[in-house]
Design a binder for these strands. Structure first.
Length: 199
DNA sequence: GCGACGATCATCT
DNA sequence: GATGATCGTCGCG
């Protein structure tokens, strides 16, 4: 069962980020079904977050979809190379989002290996937002798709106990304090599919 | 296992 | 013209 539309409508993207841990991400692209357990997420707090594309209510053609009603996908290209998968949350005109950073592959693993090319271990198949989007066949062309449709969606999964959730600062943001250090990253403790921040 | 580096281009100023 | 919510590879030892 897909998560209900109102799951995404709550105001606080931190709550949603945390609750997305353990849920199951699906994609059906080129008629190939892939799914995996979400193990790492980051919240982007729209207007009050220097790290967000919607900082200070900035509005451009690229981030326009962040202003729509929660429950759609925001995809964009980073470093000219990598597609990033975000879930838009909150009511309309509230440009919050959750970045899906890593997934533990469950099925469609052969497809993921093909899309990713030769890599020497499966822990890295969907480890990091760029890798995950590539493994699931997701690109900027999917920007704006509803999670209630059948290309990209999220279903229930196993409960993740509070004690297994780690809260940490976000990865890869070259911004000033305090935004750089605010703990808006969530991941499952000890899970080998979680990405490793570089220095 | 770890740090350095280059790839590569849409987007915004 | 500068920048970036990244990643794979290379050299090291």
């Amino acid at each position: 069962m897909k998560l209900p539309a109102d799951f995404y409508l709550r105001e606080d993207p931190c709550i949603i980020s945390k609750e997305l841990l353990g849920k199951t991400l699906f994609s059906r692209v080129d008629d190939q079904l892939c799914c995996g357990i979400i193990v790492e997420t980051e919240a982007y707090m729209g207007p009050v977050d220097r790290g967000s594309h919607a900082w200070n209510l900035k509005r451009t053609p690229r981030n326009e979809i962040m202003y729509s009603t929660g429950g759609v996908v925001y995809m964009y290209i980073c470093y000219g190379i990598h597609d990033m998968l975000n879930v838009v949350t909150g009511p309309a005109e509230t440009p919050h989002a959750v970045l899906i950073r890593a997934v533990e592959p469950v099925s469609g693993i052969e497809i993921m290996r093909e899309r990713r090319g030769v890599i020497n271990n499966d822990f890295r198949l969907c480890q990091g937002p760029g890798a995950l989007a590539k493994a699931f066949g997701l690109q900027k062309i999917h920007n704006g798709l509803s999670l209630q449709h059948d290309t990209i969606w999220i279903e229930e999964g196993a409960e993740v106990e509070e004690s297994r959730i780690v809260t940490a600062s976000r990865v890869g943001l070259n911004i000033e304090e305090p935004y750089k250090s605010i703990p808006w990253r969530y991941y499952i403790k000890g899970n080998k599919f979680v990405s490793k921040p570089r220095t």
